[in-house]
Nucleic acid binder design. Structure first.
Lengths: 129, 129, 129, 129
DNA sequence: GTGGTCTAGACCACG
DNA sequence: GTGGTCTAGACCACT
């Protein structure tokens, strides 16, 4: 379900978080759906259960999932909040890029063209499947 | 000339590198201009000379500056190369963002509008003064 | 595994880099094999961990090794690239020597004879054991 | 007469030494010929007289030149010694290269071919004129 | 004075 | 335990 890249410089627990967030955004993981247990996911990905635990804890803190002791972890219902958060983050990045582009004297027109180009034939570098 | 942000998560030496690259791109630092010495910049920024040294070393390997033992460090001449490098990097980031935007179901139109908006009233998050 | 020579004029970190590159070329270090940790190698060689760290960092930038924070450092897989790089470097040196030999009026024949001589009974000045 | 390269990593005084040695080897500077004075050569090359002084001192120690106080510096007569020294140095380098070539599994035949190739069409990277 | 190398500590995030 | 960053000193060669 989630793919992790050991060569990736980002910490493993973050890759897992982003993987689950991504699956939730795409609607593959639905509200109240049960996540794999810490131990089984650790087995699947061949990494330490500690790392999974940490990811689940952080996801709970972010409100993406909720855990019921003895029962497991589940996707929470407020996926709308997640979506808003992600969009805000994306616009912040976009703003930064546009500002940098200006200092590089890239025209607004050129920038908008590039957006369209990438929108239709952008190569994906996705980490999840 | 260069400001550093201790709150920033990025390592100090990277902030210095990007600061000097930025000043070079903006034409504030001109080819063959002498940079502050390792020690004096360290004093100015109240950080260890070692950290400055590391930044200068990396800048030299990137071809942004050249250092002469016993004389000082200087901006190198091929700043055109730097500009191209930075543009490639920027387009890579933009591509990534556009792809993410698609998965968030943001329309191409909306994206282009945001670009224009940021282009004209983008708040700057600059590191220099 | 690696020996360093304090008498050698070249900086320690370079000796370490070349030591590991050499062991990799010779196939003694294999792809994905784990290197000694920064601290343990520092202890072994009785030098500062900082110096090892610097060498590992440079090796990673050269693509010889990859480092995973919290896990360790490993030989990377594209050792073919390393071999090509080393060969180009060697031919460059050889070219320089031949040119110098010409200014010293050493004949082509003499030079080729010397090559054969060294090829069969060349004394090694190796840094490893 | 001598060209120096400020960008070259080798110290200036060494570049001057090698420049004069090279001119001597080529027969351009003849035994007992007077060298430019420290001050005038410093002017010519736009560098500090200290640096020239250091080069001349070292050349005298090596027996390449001799100085008469109040009269100037002159090429000494034993240029044969210089030539032998340079040849020994060259063969040492060649030996080193051949040994390295063996570890790279370059055949003796290939190496001899390369020598001939470079001998006839070697691109020069000379520092003197 | 300059850059280049090195030491012997330290703290952090990660697994 | 690991690598990554940083400090506050030091010494060297060079100009």
């Amino acid at each position: 379900m989630i793919g992790i890249d050991l060569q990736d410089k980002r910490p493993l627990y973050l890759q897992i978080i982003e993987g689950i967030e991504s699956l939730t955004l795409k609607g593959i993981l639905k509200p109240n759906e049960q996540l794999p247990s810490v131990r089984s996911l650790a087995m699947d990905l061949s990494i330490s259960p500690n790392t999974i635990q940490r990811a689940y804890l952080e996801l709970e803190k972010r409100g993406i999932i909720y855990s019921l002791s003895g029962k497991g972890s589940f996707i929470s219902e407020n996926s709308a909040a997640l979506e808003k958060e992600k969009m805000a983050e994306l616009y912040r990045s976009l703003n930064e890029i546009v500002v940098t582009a200006k200092t590089l004297k890239i025209s607004e027109k050129k920038l908008r063209e590039k957006v369209s180009e990438f929108y239709h034939c952008g190569k994906v570098g996705d980490f999840f499947d």
